[in-house]
């Protein structure tokens, strides 16, 4: 259940930015969460519901960009969509594959509300 820590970190970032800008609350938050980031979305949603009341994110809309896992085979340079951290190259079956995208965990943007 590290998802609660993740949500707590998001709240801290949102509180910091809201305070810094002298805003009232967050209208909308946009997150990048890669499909191989290790975040289980059901647990994430549950943690979110538990943690955001009484914070600047209490009424915030959420946009979550689920980034696909894109891997590159370092042997044959084939780019492909991966489903796990240990995917063999579908073209040459080599194990020297490198994940280019899919482990992101980012607060992309915050839309802040001002009085």
């Amino acid at each position: 259940m590290h998802e609660l820590s993740i949500v707590t970190n998001i709240i801290e970032i949102a509180e910091r930015e809201t305070h810094k800008a002298n805003a009232r609350a967050v209208q909308k938050i946009e997150l990048d969460i890669g499909v191989l980031s290790g975040i289980e979305m059901q647990a994430f949603d549950f943690a979110w519901e538990q943690a955001v009341p009484d914070t600047v994110l209490a009424k915030a809309g959420r946009k979550i960009n689920r980034l696909a896992a894109i891997a590159l085979c370092e042997d044959c340079r084939h780019r492909f969509e991966a489903e796990s951290l240990y995917e063999l190259c579908p073209r040459c079956e080599g194990i020297n594959t490198k994940l280019l995208q899919g482990r992101e965990m980012k607060v992309k943007s915050l839309e802040l509300i001002f009085e």
């Binding site: 970190n9 970032i13 965990m105 980012k106 607060v107 943007s109 915050l110 839309e111 802040l112 001002f114």
Partner: peptide, 15 residues
């Protein structure tokens, strides 16, 4: 009330 958007691109585990 009005809103404005802050682009952050901040890693959630940055801290």
């Amino acid at each position: 009330s009005h809103t404005e958007t802050v682009q952050l691109e901040e890693d959630i585990l940055h801290k």
